[in-house]
Nucleic acid binder design. Structure first.
Length: 265
DNA sequence: ATGGCAGGTTATACCTGA
């Protein structure tokens, strides 16, 4: 039995309903994990997304910014969300499926402009957030766990996850301290980078392109900020990965594109 | 030239993203 999961920072779920419908058309995912929904739960477009075939939903929104949601064709046996760094700021949701897979959807803080936790509270928050994730998943590590971790993690760890390793070493998202924090998180949970299972590290791989580029496609100054990780119990189940680069060129695009994993359970 | 744009808000300027 196959399981298809997509993750997408949509940058406003209400403005992106047609794009989500197009993703459903393109990849027919069983589960869609959204970030930056930017809407309170009472105004979340539950019915429109149920009509697309996703009646099972976990919604963790706040006013104006952040916000995550898990949309599913498959029912949940359990679901919820967790506060990180003591903040109820809409950055996490999780859902356990009947097939034993638990999906965790994250929106890690971007971290502001200055990569110094002493002078920039946003950067300190980002490092604290990654550290808390590290402790959380280290404590839950077990060989039989079938965990999937997806989302906008706001770190591009590898040299070919950014358009210029050299130019971005001092830019938040690709600094050494962030990459170290992400590496520690991956080690603590035995996480496998599913995207890089299929695209070797020598190849450039991006999931985000700035709105500010004159021609995002021509300049191609992207970063891989969005990730799909699995625990070792799911490694053999990995079948393929798709980065829907075309979505960046759609009408009224998000600056991120969907990333989709297909597994065979 | 990573900030040139985009989204939200009790807005019509300012915050946020990365």
């Amino acid at each position: 039995m196959s399981l298809v999961i997509s993750t997408w920072n949509v940058n406003s779920v209400r403005l992106r309903l047609d794009n989500i419908a197009a993703l459903a058309e393109e990849h027919n995912p069983d589960v869609i994990c959204l970030q930056e929904t930017k809407v309170v739960n009472d105004s979340f477009p539950r019915d429109a997304l149920a009509d697309l075939g996703y009646p099972h939903q976990v919604i963790n929104g706040i006013k104006g910014y952040n916000g995550v949601a898990i949309l599913s064709r498959l029912p949940f046996v359990d679901s919820g969300m967790r506060e990180w760094c003591g903040k109820a700021d809409g950055r996490h949701a999780w859902a356990a499926l009947e097939n034993g897979v638990e999906v965790n959807n994250f929106y890690v803080p971007a971290g502001g402009d200055v990569p110094d936790p002493l002078t920039n509270d946003k950067f300190a928050h980002k490092l604290d957030f990654l550290g808390e994730m590290t402790n959380w998943f280290a404590a839950r590590k077990a060989p039989d766990n079938k965990l999937v971790l997806v989302g906008d993690l706001n770190v591009a760890p590898l040299e070919n996850d950014v358009w210029s390793h050299k130019a971005l070493l001092k830019v938040v998202s690709h600094t050494a301290v962030e990459v170290e924090a992400m590496t520690a998180l991956m080690a603590a949970g035995d996480w496998i980078d599913a995207m890089r299972r299929f695209v070797p590290p020598e190849e450039r791989l991006y999931s985000w392109w700035s709105y500010r580029a004159r021609d995002w496609d021509d300049a191609d100054k992207g970063r891989r900020l969005d990730h799909i990780w699995v625990t070792p119990a799911l490694d053999d189940a990995l079948e393929s990965i798709a980065v829907l680069r075309d979505a960046r060129g759609w009408e009224k695009p998000s600056d991120h594109v969907p990333v989709t994993v297909t597994m065979k359970l």
